[in-house]
Design a protein around this nucleic acid. Structure first.
Lengths: 153, 153
DNA sequence: TGACTCATGTCAGCAGTCTGACATACGGTT
DNA sequence: AACCGTATGTCAGACTGCTGACATGAGTCA
C-alpha cells in the first residue's frame, strides 16, 4: 500500500468505493424486489411516476439512468401489464405523458416500502448529520462529473 | 417537490443519490475508456491484476462486482488478445492464478492514467478531509448492506 | 415562409451480464 | 476411508441495456 505503485489504490480509491457501495445497494435492492416480481429499473420507473405523474419516456429514462430506448421497451411492457397508461397521441410535441394506473399504484406501494427499508439498513450507522454530509459530498461529486466543461473561465 | 408525497423523496434519498453518482462516474469512465478500446469491466480486471497478480477468476469477479461466469467470458477474451495468461492446470485446487502479460501491463498503464484523471475530476471540489469523510461514510454503508444479518442481538 | 437545430418516440441489431447447471477439487466430519 | 458442504471453472441459454438509425414535432433565425 505504498504510493509508488502504478495504478489506482483500490482500497482507498473513492471511485472504487463508490462502485462497491452502488453494487452492494444494487444487490440488496434486487434481493427485495425479486420476490415482488420487479427489477430495479421497473421499480425506478414506477417510483418516478408516483412522484412526478405525467413524465415522458425520455424524462423517465434520465431519471432512471438508462437510455430512452431501454425505457421505451420497459414502458411498453408496463403498459401491456396495465401498470401505466399513455395517450395514443401526444398533446404537444412528441412527448407522451405517462401515468400510473390503480394497479400500478398498488404495486409501487409495496415495492417502495421494501426499498425504503433497504435504504434505512444502509444508513443504520449514520446519524442525521452524517447523512447530510453524505448528501453534500455525493452532490459535489455528481456536479463535478456532470459539468466539468464549465471550466477555464 | 413537496414532502407530503408517498414513496421515497428522490431529491434527498441517499440511495438515489448514490445511484446517480455511480451512474455519472460510470458514464465518465466509459467515455475515457472507449477511445482505448476497453470497457469498464475490462479495465477493472486488468487493474486488479496489476495490483494483485495471481488472482483467480472468482476473485477477479468479486473485485469487479460481476459474476464469475461473466468474468470467465472476459478472461477468455483477454487471454485470446494476449493481455493475460493462465496456467493450463491449477497448481492447487481448481483456481487458476492469472497474470498480466507485458502487453497487458502496457494497456493498463494508459487506462489507469485516464481513470485516475476522472477520479480527480470527481473529487475536484473536495479537500482531503472531505475525501476521508466520504471514505468513512461509504465504508459504513457498504458494511451495513453487506452484513445486516448482524442485528437483533 | 423555409432552413436549421434540437428533443422525442420507436425500430432493429448487438454486446455484456445474469441465471441455471454440471464436473472437479479441497476440508472437515463421522 | 467414505461423506458432505463449499468453492471453483466452465458451458449454454436468456435477458437487459446500449448503439445506430430514422421519422416526427417544436422552436429559432434569416
Amino acid at each position: 500500500m505504498s504510493q509508488g505503485e502504478p495504478g489506482i489504490e483500490l482500497d482507498t480509491s473513492l471511485g472504487y468505493m463508490l462502485k462497491a457501495a452502488a453494487s452492494a445497494l444494487h444487490s440488496a435492492l434486487e434481493a427485495v424486489l425479486r420476490p415482488l416480481g420487479m427489477t430495479i429499473t421497473h421499480y425506478s420507473c414506477l417510483e418516478l411516476l408516483a412522484q412526478r405523474p405525467g413524465l415522458s419516456n425520455s424524462e423517465l429514462a434520465r431519471g432512471a439512468f438508462v437510455t430512452r430506448q431501454s425505457m421505451n421497451v420497459l414502458l411498453q411492457a408496463l403498459e401491456r401489464q396495465g401498470l401505466v397508461v399513455r395517450p395514443a397521441q401526444a398533446p404537444v410535441g412528441r412527448a407522451l405523458p405517462t401515468e400510473l394506473t390503480a394497479l400500478g399504484r398498488r404495486q409501487i406501494k409495496m415495492a417502495s416500502a421494501a426499498v425504503r427499508r433497504v435504504e434505512q439498513d444502509m444508513l443504520a450507522n449514520l446519524n442525521a448529520g452524517e447523512q447530510d454530509q453524505m448528501r453534500r459530498l455525493l452532490a459535489a461529486c455528481i456536479a463535478s462529473l456532470t459539468e466539468p466543461p464549465a471550466s477555464a473561465t
